[in-house]
Design a protein around this nucleic acid. Sequence first.
RNA 1: GCCUUGGUAGCUCAGUGGAUAGAGCGACCCCCUCCUAAGGGGUAGGUCGCAAGUUCGAUUCUUGCCCAGGGCGCCA
Length: 585
Amino acid sequence: MTLPDCPNFKSHFAELLSHALHTLSNTDLDINIEFARPKQTSHGDYSCNLAMQLAKPLRQNPHTIATILVNAMPSSPYLEKVEVAGAGFINLFLTVQTKQQFPHIVLKKNKEFGCGNYGEKKKIQVEFVSANPTGPLHVGHGRGAAFGASLCNVLTAAGFSVSREYYVNDAGRQMDILAVSTWLRYLELNGQSIFFPTAAYQGEYVRKMAQLIYKAHGNRYVHQDKPLPENLFGQKEKKEVDPEVLLDQLILDTKNFLGQDYTYIHNFVLTEQLGDCRNDLMEFGVVFDTWFPEQTLFEDGMVAHVIKLLEQKNYLYQQDGAIWFRSSDFGDEKDRVVQRENGQFTYFASDIAYHLNKFQRGFERIINVWGADHHGYIPRMKGALQALALDPSKLEIALVQFAVLYRNGVKAPMSTRSGEFVTLRELRQEVGNDAARFFYLLRKSDQHLDFDLDLAKSQNNDNPVYYVQYAHARVCSVLEQWGENSSILATVDTALLTSAVELSLLQKLIDYPEMIDVAARELSPHLIAFYLRELAGEFHSYYNSTRFLVPEVPLRLARLALIASVRQVLANGLTLLGVSAPEKM
RNA sequence: GCCUUGGUAGCUCAGUGGAUAGAGCGACCCCCUCCUAAGGGGUAGGUCGCAAGUUCGAUUCUUGCCCAGGGCGCCA
């Protein structure tokens, strides 16, 4: 017997049971027929609780129903037997021959094994990271990057046409604060004794940018011909003065003072930080199809357009000098400002324009990967979409919790503005890209991640990533010692794979495509990391219990075909996670 | 106060409306004349936060409570 393709056993069995159900009852029972993978092998390869679900509506005991269903089930070439057990479980056992086909399927499909058609080539956009270019990426951003990149890989494998996007906040107040901070440091380099506000960016990288400007242009941006604004000097931060208000005043002063030169400083720091960010992510194996600058939304009038639209639909009003959007009409707790009293549009305003733009680009699904601290932002964004008569269900938000860092058992500060944080680059250098990527995905994205830096940095050999990679390297080593062309393994006889550990390993291979499918449906790339650890574990057991390079040629070939399949699946999974699959360790 | 996410082994965390709740680390005991010991096998370790409810069945769903993280800006 050969399997034509990679069958979806669960849906196949569901059809069989559905057929049986129809012969049993005329009533239209709307029951989802689901299968579980029992922990105990004596409970079969798949088990179904359909009979228990039917017990109440049919008013019969589940065991009787199960027996009737099993007798009415059409036969399947894949099934060895079907048993009724326990309280009324229907347990299905695959034939050994069916399982033994899988090395052939895996080795024939190679990199394609696990790919599915759930996505039906639909266009889907995933926006992630999108950190403000106001400083180096920190380990929190790293989590979003690792999650987003792997999610995109999984969605691609599941058959979507994925577009990866980074939204660049190059137009906001934070960029102004960075530009001013840099200019102040630059003034210091020029011997000016000025006051540096605590609310400005304190990081060392700001001084470095100031030095770059100083080296290239000397005192060009001091504008010695006129006195510096008074606000730069002697401003003790008094308690009654809001430091943010002070900062806004400083931005205004700086813009007025520098005139056209302000644009130079602003663009310089933006280019520097964005370039740094891009390189950092590239080294981390995270690439984007589109870098979308917020600035363009202002330049091409999109923001003005969207404000006008909302105004026409009467969703805006003026109060306290600002313009508000009626997001509370759409379930938000309160209305939100779109234009500040000082005339500046808020981040929210340009974000509405951005999302209108996303919808206009024709994506069937739009996924935003946000830090969980933005969860309160969701109702107003969806509200804005509704106000614009766009379908809010097309927009899905995947929340990623920030990583909370611990150093020497103490929570490490993670503020970009204060300049105290562990950067993604530092983390990558200390634990390596592979370990960092894997570590991030070893827990659910929407869960808090307690990241003990000392442990992570010292972990190295204990890190689960090496466990998985080692399994891959071991297979490579065995195949190398075997020394023949492994392409012949795709067609060798596998009927000699009969031990418990071999059958369990075969079943694990069978599970892979379904695991990918679930990971895509649930936007959960962490499932891959868990799967790989289990597969590697079963392989290591196999390795220790069974010798592969045995003298008997047919047995040797069968076992090599199995471990070559394991290697392929490990490599495929690691690729989705953005982790390398080394041939030697 | 409101929103949100958690509370599962000593620690870090998976998992599931089903059958005997798992892994890694840590502890203890074994296994290299043998394809890489970055490995394997075993032992110990649990009131699945507490209490009600729904259900044939709840650690899983609902509600309440306790504890903890995060969010509640004319920042992004």
